[in-house]
Design a protein around this nucleic acid. Structure first.
Lengths: 148, 148
DNA sequence: GATAATTCAAGCGCATACGATGAAATCGGA
DNA sequence: TCCGATTTCATCGTATGCGCTTGAATTATC
């Protein structure tokens, strides 16, 4: 019997899901020392970025952009409120909704350009934006395939 | 005073860190329904993949490949042991180390080709492997930059 | 051969992340 | 108007993920 051609099973490092999984851990660790001086966690930072793009959002809108449910977002937003970066208050027109808005302290942070500090660390050079687009596309495709 | 040209601050979706962050969430959700039929979580699955590549590793070696610390890995491995996928036992030569090895049940799972089921869902086509390489490179660059 | 330094897994506290559920407010049809 | 369905946020339980610390075992040094 001839030995099978051995389909060369991919090694762990070659799995895309694993690459994304570990790259996310790497980003978290790279950001940690920068953010912890500001008293922020990585997820809290992402929430602030979303609010810089569009202030005064409801919990649901913010969650849609961050791909998070309210049950995950609520404790994070309460922390950001405690730290004085944001305000949470019920919408008078619809008391079911909680609107999130930046405080001056939260807005001010925007000028720190934290994200730019890590551009070099990615080592991607000119392909940075291509990778960014590809990964975003990957995410959107996966999300869409879940809706079926 | 002339209005500044507005450096066009990147929107949230344009941040690479956010793309990776959300793509990781998307992968987790895509894998969940497949894996939960097998009684596995996403991280538990990644650990099994690492063991398929190389059986009989120590907790430390496994953690190095998965970019996880032993404190994170230990409870995950205990779950996998309870579920009957792996065995944990102290290395007689160095009793500090715990060696992890696959049970028949754990090895058998390899033939399910779970990863292949999601290839189409990524919608990347031929660029799949390019993206995989880019993201792995990104991760390695970030990790290396942390060592400085 | 005793002691100090190192290594390694494990325990603890905190912070996400998600499914299931609950509670309050709103909406919509009879 | 009234009552059930829906929307929206919050709570609870479980599972990662990390920094810090602990305790056991090995290695290095004298």
């Amino acid at each position: 019997m001839t030995k099978s051609p051995a389909p060369e099973r991919p090694k762990l490092g070659e799995f895309l899901c694993f690459a994304v999984y570990s790259a996310n851990l790497a980003f978290g660790r790279a950001y940690r020392p920068i953010l912890e001086k500001l008293g922020l966690t990585y997820t809290q930072y992402v929430a602030l970025v979303a609010l810089w793009e569009q202030d005064d959002q409801t919990v649901g809108e913010l969650g849609e952009k961050m791909f998070l449910e309210s049950n995950t977002l609520t404790p994070i937003l309460k922390k950001l409120e405690q730290s004085g970066f944001i305000e949470r208050r019920r919408d008078p027109a619809d008391e079911r909704q909680v609107r999130i808005s930046l405080t001056p302290k939260g807005s001010e942070l925007r000028s720190h350009e934290i994200g730019n500090e890590l551009f070099d660390a990615t080592g991607l050079g000119d392909s940075f934006f291509d990778v960014q687009k590809s990964v975003a596309k990957l995410r959107d495709n996966l999300m869409r395939s879940l809706g079926d």
